[in-house]
Design a protein around this nucleic acid. Sequence first.
DNA 1: ATGTGGCGTT
Length: 868
Amino acid sequence: MAKSISNFSTCTTCNCHTNEANYSKPRNGFIFFRQSSRKCLLSSNLDVPRSTRVGVSSMLDENAKISKFCELGDLRNAVELLRMSQKSDLELNTYSSVLQLCAERKRLQEGKTVHSIISSNGIPIAGVLAPKLVFMYVSCGDLREGRRIFDLTLGDNKVFLWNLMMSEYAKFGDYRESIYLFRKMQKLGITGNSYTFSCILKCFATLRSVGECKRIHGHIYKLGFGSYNTVVNSLIAAYFKSGGVDSAHKLFDELGDRDVVSWNSMISGCVMNGFSHTALEFFIQMLILRVGVDLATLVNALVACANVGSLSFGRAVHGHGVKACFGKEVRFNNTLLDMYSKCGNLNDAIQAFEKMGQTTVVSWTSIISAYVREGLYDDAIRLFYEMESKGVSPDVYSMTSVLHACAHSNSLDKGRDVHNYFRKNNVVLSLPVSNALMDMYAKCGSMEEAYLVFSQIPVKDIVSWNIMIGGYSKNSLPNRALKLFSEMLEESRPDGITMACVLPACGSLAALDIGRVIHGCILRNGYSSDLHVVNALIDMYVKCGSLVHARLLFDIIPEKDLISWTVMITGYGMHGFGNEAIATFQKMRIAGIKPDEITFTSILYACSHSGLLNEGWAFFNSMRSECNIEPKLEHYACMVDLLARTGNLSKAYNFIETIPIKPDATVWGALLCGCRIHHDVELAEKVAEHVFELEPDNTGYYVLLTNIYAEAEKWEEVKKLRERICKRGLKKSPGCSWIEVQGKCTTFVSADSTHPQAKSMVSLLNSLRIKMKNEGYSPEMRYALVNADETEKELALCGHSEKLAMAFGILNLPLGRTIRVAKNLRVCGDCHEMAKFMSKSTRREIILRDSNRFHHFKDGFCSCRDFW
DNA sequence: ATGTGGCGTT
């Protein structure tokens, strides 16, 4: 009975020394009450009159004393006494009570101590102790140790413990482990209860296992849980999460005893599935039926208001929430501020934010997004740093939001700053953050940095691939886009967005064969019902020169959107079918679609490429009068182009002087182009100075003026201008043309003699040239643009890249197949003449895309009517 | 003792 003195000589909590004499009668003299030191926490913690304590202690045994400590919430004393008591004196229930208190107080340290006391006392972990220990570990956050004991005592485990483990895994997002436990439970023949089914439904629903949800649904009804409110609520939520809107509604209709969670599930489920109007109807119904609303009700209702964009309804819910005393709730205020922002009212959003007593990272993310929504990117970025300085650390959401702000502000430096901030703070880049970083770099034009992030993602998702492929497409790196697309096909399955991202790459390369393969892929995978994809396909066919296919696809779209119409109008414009473009524009108007500024750019461009002066003016004037759209520089540039092409050079010049915005190089450049067409050297010189001042490093404009001089045979001026180009350190970008043969793209540069078929190509061109001369054509020597003798010029002309590409096509493509060639610069006049002749004498249709438009050569004529 | 509904990013 007597315990070793050494065990009791020191109070572990405060190191006060206990009195040996007192200790000699351990049963009566409850050691801690006799301590002399006032500092001892053990005695002072007991908030009971001294006399009572002595009385209690003298009457009770260890078990009762420990239980009493537990009852009073004095964990420290309970554990201490447990440690000091004799093994034989302790009942199992006593250990249980202490473990229970550890769990309630979430005190892992004490819990572990109790566990070790149990072990050293040699008590087997079974019966009541096992579930208590598991409960303690799980409650204190040590899921691993909890699971270890759970697994050791599997056979003894009651449903409660299974539920506990399952829900704990679900709480940490490990739904698969939760489902694994559920399956194991079934195997062991343990029937779940309502808690089990609530939890497992959430797991299946989150993992989008619709089939599993249905199976469980049947199981639940067979077991008789169909009348359990919590289970049916979970089922409703599960159906909504997996898109089974009708099933969810049916369950709700059949539910006799609806509680607030049932209603909230309906509201949030409707919102989740895009039926925010219906969600608000449920909310109104709740008010009418006087169902008590709670915080979740109001939060969901506010989300619905935000989605619908109804500021007035939002304000009403706001008022309702304040009346119901949720005005101080952070979640309520967070949603409120987001609602105001989404309803377009930044001021009220700011006010809601500033009024908040307590803010969380969600509040900051919402206000950052609110500024982004209004285009105030710099303020949004500033707020991100302000949040950090207020001690709120960013999470995935706030990080993606600020990156979104950087991406839209188009500021690579600010984006890099944020990235560096992440590095400095050792932020682990989660997938959404990495994706947002890539998107930011792609939108700011740095594909190198985007790729660096991409290459460091261990497991990429479809968004990662789509951002990179789309980024390459948009940043004029079409070959990279196609390469990455083929890499993606080996690792992961593309979706409709991937298709819409990669198609512009085919378009810019005029890679019709690859485009067709992707079209096939789209059809096989059923992406052709996605309007984004179809619009991208039409655009691809337009840019690859296959207007017929573009039109066929366009015609079968049941509900064309503004993009569909604009793509088609642009297509007709590029191919020189101005009247068709106009007809399409009118049809769009009849269909009730309102053009935007881009549509107007397209139609003006179409008018200019077909020389439709009056029509162009009419559209230009209707922008303001009918559509309330203020013309921008690109619209003015189209009008200058139209005037200049149609020979109204001085009118164009005067028009530029009336433009209310400062004209840029494209506006003056359009006039310079017109000067070339109409051989007006004098005006060209005047205009060129404006252009050179605005864009001194754009080689294209110098080349344009050089050509104007050369065509006028002003070789002295050509020479001077060449020197000027050299002085600036500029180089003429080399002309190149490319052609696809059997899915393989071959590129030619000027005077390319390295190609294996070079000889036969040159001889083909020479024989055509002789034929042309015999039929009375003379080579357009002006386009040789070198101050050389006539033979040399002729030779130089023969080496032009587009001629080589066309010759290659004739030699390698089967008869009857259209020759499709693309060129990076504008087509040369001599090549244009020769292409016309080629189309007649070889009876081939040739479609040449230059940097500006398409030329369809057939039977000796070109669709541009020699006007480009 | 364990459960269902709830804010911000792509």
